[in-house]
Design a protein around this nucleic acid. Sequence first.
DNA 1: AAATATTTTAATCAAATGATTAAAATTATA
DNA 2: TATAATTTTAATCATTTGATTAAAATATTT
Lengths: 200, 200
Amino acid sequence: MAKAKDAKNLDTSTGEKIKEAARKVFIKKGYAATRTRDIAEEAGINLALLNYYFRSKERLFQEVMSEKFQQLFSVIQPVINNEDLSLEEKVEILVENYIDLLLENQDLPLFVLSEIRVHPERFKQAVQVQKILKGSSLIRQVREKRPDIDPIHFVVSLLGMVIFPFVAKPILFASDSVFNEMMQERKRLVAQWIKAILKS
Amino acid sequence: MAKAKDAKNLDTSTGEKIKEAARKVFIKKGYAATRTRDIAEEAGINLALLNYYFRSKERLFQEVMSEKFQQLFSVIQPVINNEDLSLEEKVEILVENYIDLLLENQDLPLFVLSEIRVHPERFKQAVQVQKILKGSSLIRQVREKRPDIDPIHFVVSLLGMVIFPFVAKPILFASDSVFNEMMQERKRLVAQWIKAILKS
DNA sequence: AAATATTTTAATCAAATGATTAAAATTATA
DNA sequence: TATAATTTTAATCATTTGATTAAAATATTT
């Protein structure tokens, strides 16, 4: 075989170069505004190679999106189902980890959410998220502590307080440095506030 | 003159038919995925009329977006600057009014936010929102009550708790009816919770 | 080294797309 | 009613776009 799949080529192979360029361009422009030529140029490869390696723009996008969707939930899943953590510990870790993830990938939430909005049919993974969440240790612990309120309200509040600033950043925040400092401060505040409303 | 600008034609005129179709299609698909032919078909008019009345796809979009951007903030502005309302009253009214607005226009936040993300340069209006917010009566009242915390944290939390469910709806909620009931219940909860964390 | 398989390139296609044009139809004005 | 202005239509343009093809270049196997 002539395929360059040796260890040292795994991260610089043509396929990976294309995928990395696709991540960058798809996330920056969204699916519809992205031209396969943009990706090819960004990757420094011939346009035909994109189709040679990934068949179509659509399939390349699916690979990128599937990866980004997972990235968005892989931080949550191990925490919300860790039976060894108390409810308050879960809240603290979730907030801290999620803000750190989003600070490193600020366009992630809006990229995923806006593509889902336009093409909900492509995201059957979303149904699974609902199931995993519903059956999680976190939800059970919240229900025990506050049987009077649907636990999803607390989860939505936590996620809203953490994710929304990233989604509304262009409207609400002036500079990057102000935003970043604010989000560091916010780790402590959101954890504190969620714990407070769980008691209220 | 031959223009049909009589009162009875104002809402069914060709220009308004095009604009209404543009609202529908742009919001459903986003700018990049929208074809001017989609809008023409939706409006039941000849494609050339779109350019005759609005010059270009770009200009038609600007009109629609400007309208929708305003819609998203016109509910807030009068409340946050009403000197006659106490902080707690402002919180209650903001939450109630905003949830009602978004229940009637569920795609509004994600439509506006995702277009801003992809084309931030087109939204100079966003800077004004920051100014108006910063100088609002609401911010002053929050600062008085909690001088220890940057008031923007509270505003972001309120907006996050209210807007995020609409943004994450396809992922977090199964059916429309469940969602709508949940959001009605949420009016009371978010108001209560924001008031609580203002005291914590 | 020769033969074979894989990767890369330049050229090209067909369809889609935003926009324009010139003529026809309609409406308003004189 | 005749004339002028406005609106609407069908046809067409020039680009753009995703994808393909056939040949060239490179790497692998025998």
